[in-house]
Design a protein around this nucleic acid. Sequence first.
DNA 1: CAAATACTGTCAGTTAGTTGACAGTGTGCC
DNA 2: GGCACACTGTCAACTAACTGACAGTATTTG
Lengths: 227, 227
Amino acid sequence: MANIEQILATNAWVAMLPAEVAAELASHAQLRTLRDGELLYARGDEANGLFGVVSGGVRISATSAEGKEATVTLIGPGEWLGEISIFDGLPRISDAFAAGATELVFIPRAAFQQLLARRPELYEPFVKILCQKLRLSLAFLADMVFLPLSGRLARRLLDLARDYGEDSEHGRRITLRLPQDELGRMMGVSRQSISKELKAWEAKGLIRIAYGEITLCDEDGLRQLLE
Amino acid sequence: MANIEQILATNAWVAMLPAEVAAELASHAQLRTLRDGELLYARGDEANGLFGVVSGGVRISATSAEGKEATVTLIGPGEWLGEISIFDGLPRISDAFAAGATELVFIPRAAFQQLLARRPELYEPFVKILCQKLRLSLAFLADMVFLPLSGRLARRLLDLARDYGEDSEHGRRITLRLPQDELGRMMGVSRQSISKELKAWEAKGLIRIAYGEITLCDEDGLRQLLE
DNA sequence: CAAATACTGTCAGTTAGTTGACAGTGTGCC
DNA sequence: GGCACACTGTCAACTAACTGACAGTATTTG
């Protein structure tokens, strides 16, 4: 239990809370682990609780009527997921899968709700998270309409490099396993379109492509593609 | 002042609140009116407060680097706008214009924040509104990726007919002024594409087209376009 | 080690949607 | 009534992205 409290304390959002509220939150939290690709929840599931990523990651995705998949976003260490259904009580809107071996903290809905009623300070950080996600999704919508694939892809790679990158010999390397068909699912385009775009950038020296791996050599050059 | 309290009381979200909290909210609210097309706020503005639509409507839109406009959503009577910036304190992310002559209630940010601290019951309805908007925007994103224009347009017309429709001789008429170039801005496509699609539907008897006005004759037929 | 699997590159043919142009029609206003 | 303006319909030329196919390379597994 002390373990969970320490884990939660490292979270930027929880750190905003008064110590005793954080402790109370920790007392209801459980640890969960998932193997790569394991389903955490599916669209339409009842809201069972709130998850915080400790290590690994969670891929949030949607599935079309014909079975095509689109990756909406990746949730990394220190981030939360599942808040929407917790607050409004409606079913999950997306699917969530582990991206790599993943550790999570889980806070059951009932415990969270009771805590929320007793400790309204809890609203503040989680409302900020909701706002952040709303801003991100509106920005993404605007990009969908205004930017061609090249711009959207450049933005996504820059974001991934910031959140999941490490500096290497030739530039910032994205440490995620990132096959081009997964990038296609993130951007809502075909694998072939991604391949063509990346290949053109490699020829210009903007990036380096390896097997399931991308390194950004010229981040400013990529930023110019956003206009 | 009693006037504003009555107006607020008709709002579904405010009705969820204890009477004295609603009264306190009303005591800080002001009435504002806008002419058609008038700017309420612009992207990048400081968050000055929260708005509730009493009559008329507000068009939330985004502008690209090249000056193209996209309509993100319409906010109608009984709905709120501007919550994101109120909760997180960051600048406005979109532009907001009056769609037709519009009456609003305005709650200044400072008053709302103080009230929120004193009356945490206020969080509940507004968090639900945030959740609803997040769900809508995720659903719209999924449609963008999965559905062709025909499906997205059918969905939008059905939604508009539900929110702004009246039953008429030939079916459900959308009472908004709805020129095809505005529909194009809503869907992120050109006016010509909208015209072509609507014309094809009219030929099949699904809709009737008039000057700035659309009537849905066969809503089930339109729903089939969503698969 | 070989075999299986995962990933990348590329091509040809097709399609959905774009822009720009222009004609025609409906509405509101002096 | 007639003019200005807003809105609709349609065309041709173009482009981005799709699908399906196939070859080639890297990595993992038995």
